[in-house]
């Protein structure tokens, strides 16, 4: 059973803000370091949050990232305000991307974002609709 979680990060992510893109992940990484979280978990978390953060920057109208921690797990929530993912199964398929050519030229949109998130997360839950945007919840185990 999970103990009560404490919020350690809440940051807004703006659409197409490549200047700040990655900063929430960087902030979270520094916070986890200070909390003494093992470096392998910090690394895993950085990969997950960077992918989710850049998804918000590239694909959404803007959103926010929240991180909560308890003794046994870390919870990352990434919520955006739309436009939603049309086909979730496809979004989890390696190589599938809806990114524009311009975005691909920057080295994004290889269709590995959510695939990487799934690989490193211990649990992942994605809900997406046109009206309500996309809501991702990832759990990373801290115990053992």
């Amino acid at each position: 059973m999970s103990l009560q979680k404490q919020q350690i990060l809440n940051k807004e992510i703006e659409s197409f803000d490549f200047q700040s893109g990655g900063e929430a992940s960087s902030d979270l990484k520094n916070i986890l370091r200070k909390l003494g979280v093992p470096s392998a978990i910090v690394r895993k978390t950085a990969i997950i949050t960077y992918e989710l953060e850049m998804n918000v920057v590239i694909h959404s109208l803007g959103g926010e990232i929240t991180a909560l921690i308890s003794e046994d797990e870390l919870e990352i929530r990434v919520d955006d305000s739309g436009p939603g993912i049309e086909d979730l199964d496809k979004a989890f398929t390696a190589g599938f991307s809806t990114a524009s050519d311009e975005i691909r030229e920057m080295g994004f949109g290889a269709g590995m974002g959510l695939v990487n998130v799934k690989r490193y997360a211990d649990q992942i839950d994605v809900k997406s609709s046109k009206d309500d945007g996309t809501h991702v919840k990832v759990i990373i185990n801290l115990a053992n």
Binding site: F18, G21, G22, E23, S25, S26, K29, Y50, M106, G107
Partner: peptide, 16 residues
């Protein structure tokens, strides 16, 4: 080693 020179490269370099 890369051909990407845009600002997000710095974010990746920092994170890794």
């Amino acid at each position: 080693l890369t051909v990407q020179g845009h600002q997000n490269v710095v974010a990746v370099a920092l994170l890794v």
